[in-house]
Design a protein around this nucleic acid. Sequence first.
DNA 1: CTGAAAGCGCTTACAG
DNA 2: CTGAAAGCGCTTACAG
Lengths: 341, 341
Amino acid sequence: MKNITLKEIAETLGISITTVSKALKDYPDVSPKTRQAVLNLAHQLQYTPNSFAVNLRTRESKTIGLIIPEVVHHFFSSVINGIIAEAEKNGYLVIILQSNESLELEKKQVALLINKRVDGILMSLSNESNDDDHIKEILHKGIPLVQFDKISKLIHSSKVIINDQLAAMQAVQHLVNIGCKKIAHIRGPVNPQNAIDRFLGYKKALEKNSIPFNTNLVYTCERVSFEEGYAFAQQIKEEHPDVDGIFVITDLVAVGVLAYFNEHNIKVPQDVAVIGFSNWFMSQVITPKLSTVDQPSYEMGSEALKLLLEEMTARRDEKSFQPKTIELKTTIIERESTARS
Amino acid sequence: MKNITLKEIAETLGISITTVSKALKDYPDVSPKTRQAVLNLAHQLQYTPNSFAVNLRTRESKTIGLIIPEVVHHFFSSVINGIIAEAEKNGYLVIILQSNESLELEKKQVALLINKRVDGILMSLSNESNDDDHIKEILHKGIPLVQFDKISKLIHSSKVIINDQLAAMQAVQHLVNIGCKKIAHIRGPVNPQNAIDRFLGYKKALEKNSIPFNTNLVYTCERVSFEEGYAFAQQIKEEHPDVDGIFVITDLVAVGVLAYFNEHNIKVPQDVAVIGFSNWFMSQVITPKLSTVDQPSYEMGSEALKLLLEEMTARRDEKSFQPKTIELKTTIIERESTARS
DNA sequence: CTGAAAGCGCTTACAG
DNA sequence: CTGAAAGCGCTTACAG
């Protein structure tokens, strides 16, 4: 089906393209009669502006790009949800790309989005990311950027985060409070800032409670998977049978830990208490129900988009913009896996 | 940072824009020397074509639109994964919209994508969708369309589906095989084709095994939620204490059923066997592990994108294209929730 | 092998 | 209040 253009409307009504354009955009300097005629015909023909032409003229695509490590992930899919909803509300569409935790892919995707000339970019870094050049390139090109969740502290952009260190401290403190004396930590990979911060929070909590820190009680995930949780649970029990509490980097891994314990008749929380991180849906339906740290994911997405909008608006109006950091609240969710009476 | 244009390259080299454009696009009628000079300078200046202008000229956006009911959903997020991966491989980006199971939103989003002039659309219908006009509009505009999973049979487009009826029959047959005599069905909402087909499969399986069909044993979800599963499990036990098998529309709801049974000491599978549908990750980690129907989600996404590509290519080459339907294989996954020895 | 020119469909500063 | 014209940055049929 042919698409209607301004030209056709203009010709049909015997007026100029300029006037048609103005009428449709509610410019004041069009007579009410002309405006009405244009509006009627446009509606009748179901005119919609050619967005390609509008993009070229206005240098805006009304599209933003999102790069995340993984879509199939309860936390990230909730974030996406928040982003898409907020974007749509403001007339923006969202292109989603997935780095699959690969720095190489992440770089390619940044290039793709820059090429596409999106109006802004939202990013959560891959676990491999220990190099900032591609992200600096975004800033260098003058494209508004908001980092969330897995961020690089060195990049001077807006950020939406939680206080991972504090949240981890609270989680470990909770284990101490219910009587744990020897607490292991299954941590995330070495690069991501949030894995580092959660580890530091673990360490601080021990210190605060005068529990000696022992490197051997820290187990490092590479892929942050269910399988790793399962394997580390076994390893912990073999190497340190007296461990009575485990703080796990994220719920998926913690569920792996529970699976191993369930299968080997190790009682949770009586023998070992377990606390995860993120509050996946899954945590409340497994047995035992998993204690965890609730992390507002939908809100993280919507707040990130709002910050991006602010920056895009400032940029368009040629106002200066100071990057902001929003820190969202986390909450300890106590469930069966730490319920010692 | 200023963006480099063809004009600047042309001026710097003292040649025409035409020649620069041709050199960059590997047209044969450019002298090797000129081509090299252009390529060098373009690379040095990090030239990338302005996609807005390219879109306008070529009438292609190299972008496709995806509308799904929900992002935060193991099945759909896996489909997204397949779509994005395959799209990227072929130089397309994906805009994702979420209907939240609302027909009204779905209509709006179709309009958004048409306006955006995406090169093609992938859709899985919302549960509310009992009206096709907005989808016919896509075809009417000549935009390639592929439906997947939750489709409208009445729309003459390509489709990627599973045989829901057959898969449901196999699931119920499995319950019969392990000795179930009175089998309830928690079905999906009334509109979606796949809920209807799964229900029909349930009915056929009963018939085939000479088990009388009883309307009272069919419970209809509205929101397809964990909570509904929980509530229906209770209702089933109250209304029909002798039900010994339940076929549930999808794993999320089945997990709700298991939660109720676990909490009320009803033994699964001894007292009641339960089988779900979709093979969410969650199903293999809960207690008891849930039997289910595996549905290839990643593949559904990648196949849908391939079909769309075929159609977009045909359309561009002005060849005719006959919509195709691809039916993917499903597999019964037997786990603890139906493991009667 | 090279380039002038038209055109994609819009927006907007400017003249009348 | 109306419209001619320039221009966004590219592609491509055409002439030389």
